[in-house]
Structure formats: C-alpha cells, structure tokens
Amino acid sequence: MSIHSIELDPRQIRRRKQFNTFFSAMIMTLAVLSVIPLFLILTHIVKEGFASLKPEFFTSLPKPVGETGGGIANALVGTFMLIGIATILALPVGIGAGLFLAEHPKSKIGELVRLSVEVLQGIPSIVIGLIVYMICVKPIGNFSALSGGIALAIMMLPFIVRTTEETLRLIPTTLKEASLALGAPYYHTILQVILPAGLNGIITGVLVSIARIAGETAPLLFTAFGNPYMNANPLKPIASLPHLIFTYAISPYDDWHALAWGAAIILLGFILMLNFGARMIASKFGMDHSA
C-alpha cells in the first residue's frame, strides 16, 4: 500500500482479499467458540440438577449424609434475607450519593466521592469479607446474617451510586428548571420531579446489582458463614444458595452434589430472571444499562 506499488498486481490483490476472508472467518470462529463453555455449563447443570427439583426441594431442609432427598429451603430463605438486608442498607446511601454526584458533577467533594466509588468497585470480594469480619462479626461475637448483608451491601453500593448518577444526568435540565420556576422548593423538585423521572433507570440498576450480588460467595464465607438449619434471626449464621453450592460441591457425598446442582439451577434461573427483568425495563424506556 505504499506509494511505490501504484501499479497494482492482480495476484497481490487476490492474496490480500483471500487473507481478508480468512481473517473474517477466524474472528467469527473464535467468537462463536468462546460461547461453547457456557453451553457445556448449562447442559451439565441441567443434566445433573434437574432430578433434584421436586416440590420437597423447595420446602425441606438438607438431609444428613447418607439420606437421599432433602431440600434447600434454608438457603432460599437465607439468600432472600441477605439480599433484603443488603438492599435496605445500600439503596438509600447509594441513591443519596448518586443524587449528590449528579447535582454537583464538578465539585471537589464530587471528584473525591467518584474516586472512592471506583476504588470501592475494584476491591476484591474476599477482601470485603475480611473487613466485615473485623468490623462486624468480631464485635457481635458470632457469624450472622446481618454481617453477610453488610458485606453484600458494600459490594452493591458503588454500582447503585453509578447507575443513579448516570440516569439522573440524562434527565433534561429543563424539567428541573420548570419545577423551580413554578416556585417548588429544591428538595421538592428533586424528590417529586427528578427522582420519579429517573425511577426506571434506578430500578434497572438495582435489579442488575442484585443479580450481581446474588451469586457472591466469597464475602459470605466469614460473615454469614452458612447454616444447615432454618434461621430467620439476623444475628445468627444463615445459609445461602451460593454458599450451599460451595460447601456441598467440595464435599465427597453424591447426595449433596445432587442438591448443589439443583441449587445451581435455581440460583442461575433467579439471576437470569433479574437480568431479563432489568433489560425489559431498560428497553421499554429506551435506556441501556447492560454495559
């Protein structure tokens, strides 16, 4: 393609075109190949776990070693409780901080907060487990659902801040100005005009962030810890789907493996549903938070 080769050699052109076709085919092949592990995982989980999915799977507790059957009711309750605690803790702070960032995008404090959010998002989940062990499990004296929820809340927080900020920034300033011009006070404008206008975006963000923490295991290892019995006391150790999958997966018992495969189907289905719901809301209102 340099200036010297003004006289084009047809053979060279053919070679270039052939190589181009080869390259395109290679890109396509590599891209499609990378999807194969996902199919292997999905078929494997369904094959191994489908047999466990009986009604009692959802209503009963795991059976002791050696007895077949049993269920994961304790882990289902635990996962919902952990998610509930995490959401209650992370949501107000996250939305408040996101509001602040959207309202003061260029302020010094805003820059500092944004940096903190990015750092927070980069902390490995196992490290968050360590921290919560120190500041929560140790003072309480035992593992608890509350500390598991706090660990998950810390993981959720940066994501909620960012989606709130991004959503609110897309809302036209004219909306805010119109409200203020009508004499509505500032807090009224934010709570009654701006937040409702961005509600769908915020809900999408919350659903996606719940989907992200629902499968987290590492921060729960030394906080919620796991519990073979039913528990609804936030100050006691609690089971959860991902933690149950982990402990049963590395156990040597086939019955427990079967339970874990079944739990994997449920967990994956739950996460897919959340992501799907988030995408439905996002596409309905012309937003895209999937990236």
């Binding site: 995982i41 989907a211 987290e216 295991t217 991902p242």
Partner: peptide, 8 residues
C-alpha cells in the same frame, strides 16, 4: 456468561 456466579 457474565451473569454466571463464580461458584457455579
């Protein structure tokens, strides 16, 4: 694939 939990 991005949604599949690490433990799975």
């Amino acid at each position: 694939m991005a949604g599949v939990p690490s433990v799975i």
